[in-house]
Amino acid sequence: MKSIKKSYLFVLLFLFLFLAIIFLYIPSKQALVFVEPDRDKILCFVPISAGETFKIKYKHSIHLTDVIESYQITEQKEIRQYELEYEDFAIGMPSEVAEGETFEMKDGKYYIKNMNRRFEQFILRVGKVRANHTFVQGHISFPLTKAIEPGTRVRIQVKKINILQQMEGVNILEHNK
């Protein structure tokens, strides 16, 4: 009788551990992730759903004015750039628009709107000196250097992440409170 109880307890313990491991490793939360490409390590993330928008704001290295890139998450888990805002036509900034896009000037700023540039992922090098790359979503403004070493190259993509990955990376929403 004791042997059956021990076997039963062992099976229950094994089942519990097996389920716990599955629970920890199965991707469950969709997020916009900032990944160090060389190590495939998630440095920071923000939970995000299709239709939600975010911006990346930075200071241009040459003319030292703000540039704001606006993005939306698509149903296909792509990142769609839909607007670009900047203050100077200097080196590195566009002076024409692609088909279907519109160019506007308002209050001393230039806007390219109606953009439909889609990416499965894109690479960003977090600025070392002046850029101050900042993730912006609604009232949240998070300087990326709080979670990413300046000068680090990161891959930005939409990905389902598991609980362990959530514990390893910085959740921008929680870190910003």
Rank of each mutant, 00 (worst) to 15 (best):
residue 77 K to H: 12
residue 81 Q to P: 04
residue 65 T to W: 15
residue 78 E to V: 00
residue 63 H to C: 13
residue 82 Y to I: 00
residue 80 R to Q: 06
residue 55 K to R: 08
residue 103 F to Q: 08
residue 98 A to G: 07
residue 93 M to N: 09
residue 59 K to R: 13
residue 51 G to S: 08
residue 76 Q to N: 12
residue 95 S to K: 13
residue 41 K to V: 04
residue 64 L to H: 14
residue 40 D to N: 10
residue 58 Y to L: 13
residue 37 P to V: 01
residue 54 F to N: 06
residue 39 R to S: 13
residue 89 F to C: 07
residue 67 V to Q: 06
residue 59 K to P: 03
residue 61 S to V: 09
residue 41 K to D: 01
residue 76 Q to G: 09
residue 91 I to G: 05
residue 77 K to N: 11
residue 40 D to C: 05
residue 64 L to S: 05
residue 94 P to F: 10
residue 83 E to I: 00
residue 43 L to S: 15
residue 55 K to W: 04
residue 54 F to W: 12
residue 42 I to S: 02
residue 39 R to K: 14
residue 80 R to N: 04
residue 44 C to S: 13
residue 67 V to R: 11
residue 68 I to H: 03
residue 56 I to T: 05
residue 35 V to A: 00
residue 45 F to T: 01
residue 42 I to M: 02
residue 103 F to Y: 15
residue 92 G to P: 04
residue 67 V to W: 14
residue 78 E to Q: 15
residue 96 E to Q: 06
residue 101 E to D: 05
residue 48 I to V: 14
residue 100 G to K: 04
residue 48 I to P: 10
residue 90 A to V: 01
residue 41 K to P: 00
residue 54 F to K: 05
residue 85 E to I: 05
residue 91 I to F: 05
residue 87 E to Q: 10
residue 102 T to D: 10
residue 43 L to E: 09
residue 86 Y to L: 05
residue 43 L to Q: 10
residue 83 E to M: 08
residue 54 F to H: 08
residue 40 D to F: 07
residue 59 K to G: 07
residue 90 A to F: 14
residue 60 H to I: 11
residue 87 E to L: 08
residue 44 C to E: 01
residue 92 G to C: 03
residue 88 D to L: 00
residue 73 I to N: 06
residue 76 Q to K: 15
residue 64 L to V: 10
residue 63 H to S: 03
residue 101 E to Q: 07
residue 88 D to V: 04
residue 45 F to I: 06
residue 55 K to N: 01
residue 71 Y to R: 04
residue 69 E to V: 14
residue 50 A to N: 15
residue 72 Q to V: 07
residue 75 E to Q: 10
